[in-house]
Design a protein around this nucleic acid. Sequence first.
RNA 1: GUGAUCGUAGUUCAGUUGGUUAGAACGCCUGAUUGUGGUUCAGGAGGUCGUGGGUUCGAGUCCCAUCUUUCACCCCA
Length: 459
Amino acid sequence: MSKQKPSLPKGTRDFGPAEMNKRHFILETIKKVYQKYGYAPIETPAMENLSVLQGKYGDEGDQLLFKILNSGDFLSKTEKTDLNSSKDLLPKIAEKGLRYDLTVPFARFVVMNQHNLSFPFKRYQIQPVWRADKPQKGRYREFYQCDADAIGTDSLLCEAEIVLMIKEVFTLLQAKKANSLDYSIKINNRKILSGLVEAIGQKGKETDFAVAIDKLDKIGIDKVKEELSSKGFDQAAIDKLDPVFAISGNNREKLQAVKSVLQSSEVGLKGTNELEEVLNILDSFGMEVPELELDITLARGLSYYTGAIFEVKPNNVKMGSISGGGRYDGLTDNFGLPNVSGVGISFGVDRIYDVLEELDLYPDNNITSTKVLITAFDQDSWNYGLKVLSSLRNAEIKSEIYPEPVKIKKQMKYANDKQIPFVIVIGSEEIKSGKLALKNMQEGTQEMLSTDEIINFLK
RNA sequence: GUGAUCGUAGUUCAGUUGGUUAGAACGCCUGAUUGUGGUUCAGGAGGUCGUGGGUUCGAGUCCCAUCUUUCACCCCA
């Protein structure tokens, strides 16, 4: 018998108590904001039928889906010739997959429950998703997304509220003011991108255009032009983009500049009008959002977006986007429910965790642990301690008793390791007098108090 | 998917041109302290050097494969 060392699948992690406390802080913050804006919680299964997932995320996305092998004798349904190609084999041996994001399962949920839902339907959903990616900085194979989506309305109020929610979440997360997260909420509209492609006479090449222009801040204008050229955009068309690359100023000024480039494109102008309306609504709220930045080059990879798109980028930490979203018109169409538009946002908890960790932004007293530990010298004291414990818990004081009356030193060490601030020591003298020793672990001081006095003190 | 990179005690890491019994710090356990943690002091336990092959009289060290880590590209939260 050889003992095997346990290990985790690539790109997955365990979380200890200290990490979970911080993660809960993030999750609770996001949840609080979602609820405040009228979103209701739902959950969907970890696995979906592959037919639901495939074809929604683009070719790259399909490759990153985790597939689940069919149960039983899965080979019995295959032919010898299927073994020649993974493409032929796959659908015969796997019909389920792990969810890749929360938006597509949500669209499925909406279609399946359309007759029970009241539209517009606003839901939030906080669950893990899985991607068969190669792990690297800020990239895991299992990670949590926190989505809020509003479906069944075209109102641009939803877009505006998304901006407000993003701002509120990141304001609340920065409980510790010593450092701060410098971030931008980037916004754009897929219709503007489509309009640009149309305006330069390259209609049909939207995807290549989006992929290339999205890299602008990373690789620069020249490289983007090179990439466009290599994707078959002719030089005259590329040159027409120069005014776009030159756009600067505040959000309103940028919008005006884009409009002039898009004069010939109906869809492009629709995009700029939508963005303008979002800015107007934000003004009506009377909220200043200096983090909001119109970025004509923002594209985002997911292929289902059709209107506004969002992305939140940290500026003082090297990390990809920590939040993203946008409007999608055709997602429920895939499942037989046309003409339903949705818009949503997703926070990437794992990346936000890494960013807050790097900037040391967690509040100091984030630990919700035991407040008092009862220790006992012998069995009689321990039995007495159970009554005390019961009283403490009835008074809603987080408390525990060391499970056995072992050496007091060991019990003390346990309290110390677990950072329990108070310890009650019970021995024969304490039982006799009814006054228990309450030790303050931080000060090292100790006083004799009755159980009631202890409860009043700790409450 | 492409290209690099890492792996030695619970943890972070040393380990010479290949050469006896693989070290340190921190942590852990025991005691100094039979009614008290965190400090101090003394002692102790703990490693088939990621895994599997190969070269060699001899491999932690060299070669190959594989898994894992980290990172860039592609793409993405």
